[in-house]
């Protein structure tokens, strides 16, 4: 069941709650308010700043060179590693067993008793604005689509030198024996978007709304709003490479 479906369930109301529970709730409320009030008074500065959202790797001035400027925003905290996205990707794009177009990595620190606090991080091609793979390809077998910004592949042009694999900061490419060429995520352009569908298979399959897909050049789009939510922390992977990726991660 999706979270959006849960939201549609009818509320059971508060009438049946015992008064002890209500008192506990009020106490908790007062405690939280007190701590925040105290903290604010002590620090003598405002704790809220509308511009304080941390955004790392988003270009300044909201300039999105493509239209639609396809992007994926990953709400990392929601991911539970169910791998339905991976299954959908494999099925939709004929991804062989030995390869993958998207993967889920687990971030966390080892703690006592073998337990650890885990966060799951889906990874895929970042469809960079300055894709290192496209720059290095000697035969333009891979290129950045001028309209959508999707980094695409022409298998029949690929000589298999694997320079793009070496150049990619995200390990997003692999050699697919069946077509004797490099294969990679194309936001399901070939299999879905070019046929009129609105989102990639992994996005559709995700039950927790982790992967959000849309047009960043459209200010009304969900992805634009997510990236511009107050207090959101937004980041990209490996910003130091200068590739300016189009897959964003956020804590909301």
């Amino acid at each position: 069941m999706k979270i959006s479906d849960l939201e549609k369930l009818k509320s059971e109301g508060v009438e049946q709650l015992p008064s002890q529970e209500r008192r506990n709730f009020l106490k908790l409320g007062f405690a939280v308010t007190g701590v925040y009030l105290g903290g604010t008074v002590l620090s003598l500065v405002s704790t809220f700043d509308a511009d304080a959202a941390i955004r790392q790797g988003i270009p300044d001035g909201c300039e999105w060179p493509y239209s639609p400027h396809y992007t994926m925003v990953i709400r990392e905290r929601r991911c539970i590693d169910c791998e339905l996205c991976k299954v959908a990707c494999v099925k939709t794009n004929n991804v062989p067993e030995y390869g993958y177009r998207t993967d889920i990595l687990e971030i966390g620190a080892e703690a006592k008793h073998g337990l650890h606090d885990a966060t799951f991080m889906p990874v895929l091609c970042n469809h960079c604005n300055r894709p290192p793979c496209v720059r290095v390809c000697p035969t333009t077998a891979t290129w950045k689509d001028e309209v959508t910004g999707i980094v695409r592949m022409n298998p029949s042009r690929c000589i298999g030198c694997k320079t793009c694999m070496t150049a990619c900061p995200y390990n997003a490419r692999y050699f697919k024996e069946e077509i004797r060429a490099i294969d990679k995520c194309d936001f399901c352009w070939e299999s879905r978007l070019s046929k009129g569908m609105k989102e990639p298979a992994c996005v559709e399959a995700c039950p927790a709304g982790v992967r959000m897909f849309g047009d960043l050049s459209d200010q009304k789009s969900e992805v634009f709003k997510l990236l511009h939510t107050q207090d959101a922390v937004v980041w990209v992977l490996r910003p130091e490479t200068g590739a300016t990726p189009n897959v964003y991660y956020t804590n909301i």
Partner: peptide
């Protein structure tokens, strides 16, 4: 023998010449 499809090179190098690619220049 390292390049998977070296037979695609003559055509690809001419038709798909990528002047920003060091591999292209090197080859």
């Amino acid at each position: 023998f390292e390049i998977e499809n070296s037979w695609r090179m003559p055509y690809g190098n001419v038709v798909g010449a990528n002047l920003s690619s060091n591999i292209w220049w090197m080859g």
